[in-house]
Design a protein around this nucleic acid. Structure first.
Lengths: 116, 116
DNA sequence: CAGATTTACTACGTCTGCCGTACTATGTTT
DNA sequence: AAACATAGTACGGCAGACGTAGTAAATCTG
């Protein structure tokens, strides 16, 4: 079983988070589950990686946080939600471009051997 | 102009080096130039990154070093050449598999917008 | 033939993102 | 009542990439 090492995914965790926040604001636990679902169970972001990404990206103004109740009637625990900013959208787009370039480059050094 | 950030390429520098050493033993300066050529000028490995990769990979027994003259008649400066080991070949193969998986995962989060 | 450039490295310290471990504290299910 | 899911925070360590700098021989260039 091949796993994705942190050195490989490094630099794309932020992109994954932003791609989810592009759709609508969300919070840690939900994003974590969405990443698992979207990746078809192939990747799970670590909690600490996720929350430190929030801190970093908020500092960089790629996201904004706000606190909201779980249900509109005011009961339930409060959660910290994140929303993508315009700067975050730009950053996401640039990361998508970078990905296309990276793919082109790396594939020159990779040998692909079909299924087995 | 999009550039490839170190956080993105991290984890693939070793793979690139090994893919070159798979063909034949080589040395630092040459590998550096080959990476530039093979990537079509899109990526240049930093010297310090390259040489620290040698140290790490030799310790991990993915490569072996030997010293040789530049020309067979014994003149010219000596160079440190590296040769890939069986363990290194295995590692390279596993990295290729990992790349296929990473691609599948990351692409779920990326939006591709043709040329422009 | 002197100076610039290319070749071929080594040393050292810093930065950053990822991760392990651990802890807190509700809410919900069995 | 206990277990599990939810929703985090705190803290420290690690490893790979990189900036800066320095050495030194070989080769090209005016």
């Amino acid at each position: 079983m091949v796993a994705i090492s942190s050195d490989v995914i490094r630099g794309y965790n932020d992109t994954m988070i932003l791609s989810i926040l592009k759709k609508e604001p969300s919070y840690g636990y939900s994003i974590s589950k969405q990443i698992k679902t979207i990746s078809d169970g192939k990747y799970a972001i670590k909690e600490t990686t996720l929350y430190s990404a929030f801190t970093r990206m908020e500092k960089n103004e790629y996201i904004e946080s706000f606190v909201a109740e779980q249900s509109p009637d005011g009961n339930g625990k409060k959660r910290t939600y994140y929303r993508i900013t315009d700067k975050g959208l730009e950053y996401y787009d640039s990361k998508c471009e970078e990905w296309e370039l990276t793919k082109e480059v790396v594939e020159n050094f990779i040998e692909y051997k079909g299924e087995e």
